[in-house]
Simulated assay, not measured.
Amino acid sequence: MGILLVYDVTDERSFNNIENWYKNVEHYASEGVNKILIGNKCDIEASRAVTRESGQKLADELGIKFLETSAKSNTNVDEAFFTLARDIKERLLDSAEHPDQAAGSGGAGGAGNGKIDINDTQKSFSQGLGCC
């Protein structure tokens, strides 16, 4: 239902591979799947190889959202997943309200009744329960 395209801000090769990953997602994933571009390791400024501006520019070109994160310092990690979850929820609600405009198989298929309570998800994360 959602895909995070992640690159390492200290490794330009990982950033350069994003467009190939994006093409694979467009080719193999369900139509309309939500995507977000993530630049990880933003806490390591000394060896940064990819600027925030370059990440944002690529995200703009691909038409997807962008965040920089640090798994090590837990910077924006929750925000990345919550942003993606909110976008999925919005898409599901929109396709439920306008089923004739739903994008191919990217609709609410496999989501049961299509209802996601983002507040329950945030509560679970804040209590350390995780998602899976």
Score class of each variant (00 low, 15 high):
Ala29Lys: 00
Ile38Met: 07
Ser73Asn: 15
Ile64Gln: 13
Gln56Val: 12
Lys65Glu: 14
Asp78Pro: 10
Ala71Ile: 12
Lys57Asn: 07
Ser30Met: 15
Gln56Cys: 13
Lys35Asp: 00
Lys72Phe: 06
Ile64Glu: 10
Gly63Cys: 03
Glu53Asp: 13
Arg86Asn: 00
Thr75Ala: 11
Gly55Cys: 02
Ile38Tyr: 07
His27Ala: 14
Val50Asp: 05
Ser54Glu: 14
Ser73Arg: 14
Ala29Met: 00
Gly55Thr: 01
Ala46Gln: 15
Ala80Gln: 03
Glu53Ala: 13
Thr75His: 05
Cys42Val: 09
Phe66His: 08
Ser73Thr: 14
Thr83Cys: 02
Ala29Asp: 00
Glu45Pro: 10
Arg86Val: 03
Asp60Ile: 09
Ala59Glu: 01
His27Gly: 11
Asn74Met: 03
Lys41Phe: 13
Asp60Trp: 11
Lys57Trp: 06
Gly55Asn: 00
Lys41Asp: 12
Leu37Ala: 05
Phe66Pro: 03
Thr51Glu: 08
Asn40Leu: 11
Lys35Ile: 03
Ala71Val: 14
Ile36Asn: 05
Thr69Leu: 01
Asp78Lys: 09
Leu67Thr: 02
Val50Tyr: 04
Ala80Gly: 03
Leu84Lys: 00
Ala46Pro: 09
Asp78Ala: 13
Ser70Pro: 01
Thr83Asp: 05
Leu62Ser: 01
Phe82His: 02
Asn40Asp: 13
Lys57Cys: 12
Gly55His: 06
Ala49Arg: 15
Lys41Glu: 12
Leu58Met: 02
Tyr28Ile: 06
Ile36Pro: 09
Ser70Arg: 08
Leu67Arg: 01
Arg52Glu: 12
Leu62Asp: 00
Asp78Phe: 09
Gly63Met: 02
Gln56Pro: 09
Ile64Tyr: 07
Asp60His: 10
Asn76Gly: 05
Asp78Glu: 15
Thr83Val: 03
Ala49Glu: 15
Glu31Arg: 10
Phe82Glu: 03
Asn34Leu: 12
Ile38Gln: 03
Phe81Ile: 02
Glu53Tyr: 11
Ser47Ile: 08
Asp78Arg: 14
Glu68Cys: 13
Ile44His: 08
Cys42Glu: 10
Val33His: 06
Val50Ser: 05
Ala85Glu: 04
Leu37His: 04
Leu62Trp: 01
Ser73Leu: 14
Leu67Pro: 01
Ser70Leu: 08
